[in-house]
């Protein structure tokens, strides 16, 4: 029971890192990427190969994954510079499919569908991160750090410039920023953060193969950001928590396991469509709406009382 909750929380924390990093590109940058699982995968493969052949140091793995993830991010940034909106969506889809093909076919490096097995536990300052508890602590701390970084970044001039890029590219030049440069940095930064999640995932499961980094996974990350509320600091983590914990709630219905996945995805699809029609700001938008209504209601109550 405890380990079950621990592993659920670890996956939630991973999802929070992924959703928050995707939010930089998708929510703030307005570049609708459906290829985020690629960077997650690059980070995971980097850490696994390092751990199997060189060193299982967590710090070293994260540093290396940031480099490889950032480079992969630059690859996606190339189309981001040339095409916009729906065309970029399609470019990122293409990027995801090509990356999946490479993960599957480059047996010598990725082990193909059989994957890389027997990844040893990570070590951090001489301690071995082996138990679920230790994984949970490390993953949660990193998730919190990512949230703090995203929040700080969005309050900085970088964040303002990024939002300007999304809403009105003309206005951006008046801020004295180069849109090309800004797009490159955002996509690369987002990819770096996602690859850190990949490192944690590889050490936690001690196994990686292409199935964890498919188009489906990218779509789930997009679902997290959209359902939570794109372009807000708290939306994507909320969405991530919802998408990871919802299946556990569904198991309450005692459905056969073969139906769980489809029921879950069917629900996400319907929620996404309804949200887009009625409240494109996601859960955060709904919460804001509830709060606004509260304030108005409190205001009315207050004025009634004053009148009485």
């Amino acid at each position: 029971m405890i380990s079950y909750l621990e592993s659920l929380l670890i996956f939630t924390a991973l999802a929070i890192i992924l959703a928050s990093s995707l939010n930089l590109v998708l929510g703030y940058g307005g570049m609708f990427s459906v290829a985020h699982a690629v960077f997650y995968g690059v980070g995971a493969y980097t850490a696994s190969l390092l751990a199997l052949h060189l060193s299982n140091s967590l710090v070293l793995s994260i540093l290396c994954a940031i480099i490889t993830g950032g480079l992969a991010g630059l690859l996606l940034a190339v189309p981001a510079l040339r095409v916009k909106e729906e065309y970029f969506v399609v470019a990122s889809l293409g990027f995801q499919i090509i990356a999946s093909t490479v993960f599957n076919q480059w047996d010598a490096v990725t082990g193909g569908i059989g994957g890389l097995t027997g990844i040893p536990p990570a070590s951090l300052f001489g301690y071995e991160i082996d138990s679920y508890g230790a994984h949970l602590v490390v993953t949660s701390l990193l998730a919190a750090a990512v949230l703090a970084i995203v929040a700080a970044l969005m309050r900085s001039s970088f964040g303002r410039a990024l939002r300007a890029l999304r809403d009105d590219e003309q206005a951006l030049s008046s801020l004295g920023r180069n849109p090309t440069h800004l797009r490159l940095v955002t996509v690369a930064l987002s990819a770096m953060i996602a690859s850190v999640a990949g490192v944690l995932y590889a050490y936690f499961t001690s196994f990686v193969n292409p199935e964890s980094f498919t188009l489906d996974e990218s779509v789930m990350m997009m679902v997290m950001v959209i359902i939570g509320g794109a372009g807000t600091v708290w939306g994507p983590p909320l969405g991530a928590a919802f998408v990871t914990i919802f299946p556990a709630l569904l198991s309450f219905l005692k459905l056969p396991s073969s139906l769980l996945g489809p029921v879950q995805r069917l629900t996400y699809g319907v929620i996404m469509t309804l949200l887009m029609i009625y409240e494109p700001a996601g859960i955060v938008g709904l919460l804001r709406w509830v709060r606004r209504r509260q304030i108005i209601l409190n205001g009315i109550n207050g004025s009634n009382r004053a009148a009485a």
Partner: peptide, 20 residues
Amino acid sequence: EDSRALPQPAIIAMNKLVNV
């Protein structure tokens, strides 16, 4: 536990069986 005959769901299943 359901593996769908694929490694990744199998890993999740095995971790659950062994650790939980």
